[in-house]
Write a protein that binds this DNA or RNA. Sequence first.
DNA 1: TGAAAGAATACCAAATTAGTATCCATTCTG
DNA 2: CAGAATGGATACTAATTTGGTATTCTTTCA
Lengths: 155, 155
Amino acid sequence: MKIGKLTDYGVLVLNHLARTGVNLQSTEEIATATGIPLPTARKVMRTLVDAGLVLARRGAKGGYRLGRSPAQIPLLAIVEAFEGKLTLTECSSTESDCEITEQCSLAGNWVGINQVLGMVLAGISLNDIRHPAGLQRLADSFKSSNEHIHLVSID
Amino acid sequence: MKIGKLTDYGVLVLNHLARTGVNLQSTEEIATATGIPLPTARKVMRTLVDAGLVLARRGAKGGYRLGRSPAQIPLLAIVEAFEGKLTLTECSSTESDCEITEQCSLAGNWVGINQVLGMVLAGISLNDIRHPAGLQRLADSFKSSNEHIHLVSID
DNA sequence: TGAAAGAATACCAAATTAGTATCCATTCTG
DNA sequence: CAGAATGGATACTAATTTGGTATTCTTTCA
Ligand code: SF4
Ligand code: SF4
């Protein structure tokens, strides 16, 4: 129930790019600004570009910049860029790495939970991550909707 | 962004105990019923007992049964029993395993996200896991509250 | 008192992840 | 056009975590 360090680094980088705006940032600039070791930073950038979250310009005077506004980058996209589709368990449809999938009575019951988790992460934007104040209000809004949740839970 | 297999096994066991009710189940019964290898099942039971989620009776004719009603066992409790307090990143207050915590500008910004995630998992009970129908309604309720979330996100 | 359980500890093997190094392809600049 | 500055791609290694197993002790019932 953690995100990988690379994912975390990804957020770090996106945060930096959000600050620097349209000015292209080289891998080295990013590495020193964030504290991420240079070779690792390369790998991170690769992933972010592949996911379309940042744009790259190659050649001399090249570098990276955000692909969209920070408000339009959901945490879900960042996580899934680094770790693949969000699934808490192994029994994710086709590729069932789980040995006991056959025997398991609640193999399919996780899809709903994955969906809920996904919606939550989709509702958190890079901006929310950067501005703790907004996050606090987000947390509060959930607290109130918790009553709703418990109503739904049947016994 | 996955739960460990042991955690998953924990849910499996709890599900089984929810079915068998007050009848004490031995480790071997649990292992065969769930498909979990016997030695591993022992470890799982240990964790569940330590967390207070199941009660153990030792000696001959001993075994395990649920400690509380399935509706009162939140997924959050199960996860935290196996994986410790829910934190997406390493910078969890005191024990900062992260090398660049000093330099990191958003080290503290994750607490809010962890809280939100925790609330969500706290709102999902063992019953919700066992009954997919209820889960679907849960997902729907979130979909509607998503508007609210986006309103909060500032740009 | 002995058999049937769970408790505790320690250990090993496998998988995943983080991190590094190296070489190639592109673009700007003069 | 040449060369320097950059990102792209690939492959490898090391560290950590996780899953899984074995062994021995303690408790309880019949
Ligand atoms: S099949 Fe059952 S045991 Fe295997 S991963 Fe899915 S839920 Fe967990
Ligand atoms: S300190 Fe910054 S980099 Fe280190 S774990 Fe926390 S968020 Fe990630």
